[in-house]
């Protein structure tokens, strides 16, 4: 009975995110324009300037990971808007487990992020990028899920602590951008100076980029097993922290 109720709560919160997604469809599809510009312009320019063969192919999994990161953190932080617009009270007053609410919110956000990731994967395949195989592309989907859960829970955890729009801007400039730039989405890991190498290896997104590179183009510098272990541990940790902080929230 309790399990049934918990499932119902998770499902309800997921349903809400989907209802909102349905109305924001065009905006979300439109948001794929930026990563495509990155890939087409930056990818072509860098590839030709530095004589890197297939730079676009190298970059494409990184761009997908970037979109997942943006979408997930944003989805998690939307808890902040829920607080601002009052809806959070309606959720927190309900006689349900708050961890399940956070989980439902996370699943909803991650579904949105995955839809974007999958669309981007399909579109980029037609822009001069050739992914290795269909099974590889299918395998990328669960990896997108793990990446998404990790960062959306991080977003939820941050949202419980952020009071203002300024805080949101800070997160975007001091967390999201460094995570993307330090992820190896745009450059190979092997030739980096030591300080940068350490920073890149401490970044969970690096393992997401590398895992997607493995499944999509069949090569990665970090072994896939290591990637999966790090990504899964990251997702479990942030979910635990995010859920816990969300449970303690007062409105």
């Amino acid at each position: 009975m309790d399990a049934m109720l918990s499932f119902q709560t998770v499902y309800t919160m997921w349903l809400r995110e989907m209802l909102r997604f349905k109305r924001a469809k065009s905006r979300i599809v439109g948001s794929l324009a930026t990563p495509l510009f990155f890939l087409i312009i930056l990818g072509t320019a860098m590839g030709s300037s530095y004589n890197i063969e297939n730079y676009k192919e190298f970059m494409a999994p990184g761009i997908i990971a970037m979109v997942l990161l943006f979408s997930s953190i944003f989805g998690g932080i939307s808890v902040m808007w829920d607080r601002e617009f009052g809806f959070l009270k309606e959720i927190l007053i309900a006689p349900v487990n708050r961890f399940c609410i956070a989980l439902g919110k996370a699943f909803g956000g991650v579904t949105t992020a995955m839809i974007q990731g999958i669309l981007l994967m399909i579109i980029t395949n037609g822009f001069g990028v050739h992914y290795k195989s269909l099974p590889g592309m299918l395998l990328s989907i669960p990896i997108m899920f793990i990446i998404g859960i990790g960062f959306i829970s991080l977003g939820i955890a941050l949202a419980t602590k952020i009071e203002s729009h300024e805080g949101f801007q800070m997160v975007m400039s001091f967390l999201t951008m460094p995570l993307v730039l330090l992820s190896g989405a745009f450059f190979p890991l092997s030739k980096l100076p030591d300080w940068l190498k350490i920073a890149v290896h401490l970044n969970p997104l690096t393992y997401g980029v590398e895992a997607l590179r493995f499944t999509l183009i069949g090569e990665s510098e970090i072994p896939i097993v290591v990637c999966l272990v790090v990504l899964t541990s990251f997702a479990i940790t942030t979910t635990a922290i995010g859920g816990w902080l969300f449970g303690r929230m007062e409105v």
């Binding site: 309800t12 809400r16 109305r23 617009f85 309606e90």
Partner: peptide, 23 residues
């Protein structure tokens, strides 16, 4: 509550439906 706690991106019907599900 005193202020609105509805999800304004959803319809009235959807707001009630979600409430019923949560309870």
């Amino acid at each position: 509550f005193q202020g609105s706690t509805l999800d304004e991106q959803l319809t009235g019907w959807e707001n009630l439906d979600l409430h019923g599900r949560l309870y």
